[in-house]
Write a protein that binds this DNA or RNA. Structure first.
Lengths: 244, 244
DNA sequence: CCTCCAGCCTCACGCCACGTGAGGGTCAAG
DNA sequence: CTTGACCCTCACGTGGCGTGAGGCTGGAGG
């Protein structure tokens, strides 16, 4: 005895629309139709649908379910793959929950606005990459900084400020930008970025230097430490890069 | 200094399409356009986008993010709600993983096919409900049986078989279907369903009885125990229901 | 000036798994 | 015959983009 689509919907708790859709995509189709076109599901069809529902309940996509029922894929392999997918989803959720905790506490490693206040290397690097290369560095930087808390950010800012102060001192003392003492600080700058954000090549740093003087935002920000520092910083980077 | 959509895409790792979309839905739009129509993002726009990305990374939907940034919702409330949503998602995933483990071991509480072999009450009830009432019982039944393992299923099948044997014995002994001894077994049948699946009313049981004789599949299956048992079972149910 | 190329614009359809109607035919009971 | 529940197909929508198509813009170089 066959069932109509409405009967089957009631039996399974699905909607008629869902059964239509499963018929349409060939996932579970009725064996027969009346002359009027009514779908008639036989017992085998119902059994198949039950299998579909079991796998759907496991979170599998319909396409995957179709392949599984067609025997296109080894059962163990199916389970292994699917478990891996579910575990990854759960890890993603765990990361979101962890990030939410950080956000709630105002730690805001995710709050990039703090990175726009003051001298923030992540911003400068990112824009340098936007201009001169791919976004790999930015992604690497984002990947790392995601896990930084206030201690790390404090350390980053202190180091960056110290680099700025060193250069400012050299500049005030009249040390030429091409001097080895300036070059040493520039190397320190490069190492600082490499340690906290991503591997900083001489070329990338050169781009940063150009940006410090080309962009009024950065110039103004850097020159808060000492007037003219942005220019001196750029020249020191240039000199250092040219000797490499 | 303003940025074009391509610059911003590189800076953030997003696609131009995504930025178009965010502009379209008003989530993050450029402050200006060139005469040619090019989007120009100012610093404030970039800051806003960074905030969008932070919240998106937490798994929030774009609509929700828009409302959050508009200050439409209290920050603590936002966090509380979102945490609850993430926790629920994780619990769902945990349930899927647990179900997958069951599936892998072949316990198959999810594999309803086993319920179609032999005399399976869940099938009969479900179809009874499909014909005479809502699917509440089916859902209740599914909810309970989801947690049954082989011990429970063995017990269910043994009990069901015993009920069938008792009725068969009465039938063979020539006991009328309306006899109190038959009624006692019918009550036992009702209790069995109630205990393992869902509250079985007299009315629902009446429907089951009708189905046993109306559907050749069930008749054939029940009559494996004893020829004519399906009819006797239905009559006993009728008699019992009429006296209630 | 013209060409070329990278970048920009809008439009539009697709994905996944259905939800929701519209418009109209079918079936069984009264 | 009427009525009401059920059936059919068609089609657009959802969220967050991916992917092209077709065409305009701007700057560098010849």
């Amino acid at each position: 005895m066959a069932m109509t689509v409405g009967d089957l919907a009631k039996l399974t708790g699905l909607t008629v629309r869902t059964l239509h859709y499963y018929d349409e995509i060939g996932l579970c189709s009725p064996s027969q139709r009346t002359e009027a076109g009514y779908r008639l599901y036989a017992e085998d069809d119902v059994v198949r649908l039950q299998h579909v529902l079991v796998l759907r309940e496991l979170g599998m996509g319909l396409d995957e379910i179709g392949r599984a029922l067609a025997g296109d894929i080894d059962r163990d392999e199916l389970i292994r793959r699917h478990r891996a997918a579910l575990i990854e989803k759960r890890e993603r959720l765990d990361r979101m929950l962890a990030a939410l905790d950080h956000y709630e506490r105002g730690d805001a490693p995710m709050d990039f606005r703090t990175m726009f206040d003051g001298f923030d290397p992540a911003e400068h690097e990112a824009e340098a990459k936007a201009r001169w290369g791919t976004t790999d560095a930015y992604k690497e930087s984002a990947r790392r900084t995601k896990q930084y808390g206030p201690p790390e950010w404090d350390a980053i800012k202190r180091e960056a400020a110290a680099i700025g102060e060193q250069l400012a001192a050299l500049m005030r003392a009249g040390v030429p930008a091409a001097d080895p003492r300036a070059a040493a600080v520039i190397a320190e700058h490069r190492a600082h970025i490499t340690r906290w954000f991503y591997p900083c090549t001489v070329e990338i740093q050169r781009g940063l230097g150009e940006m410090y003087v080309a962009d009024a935002r950065f110039t103004a920000n850097i020159d808060k430490t000492a007037p003219g520092l942005a220019l001196y910083w750029r020249d020191a980077i240039r000199a250092s890069a040219d000797q490499t």
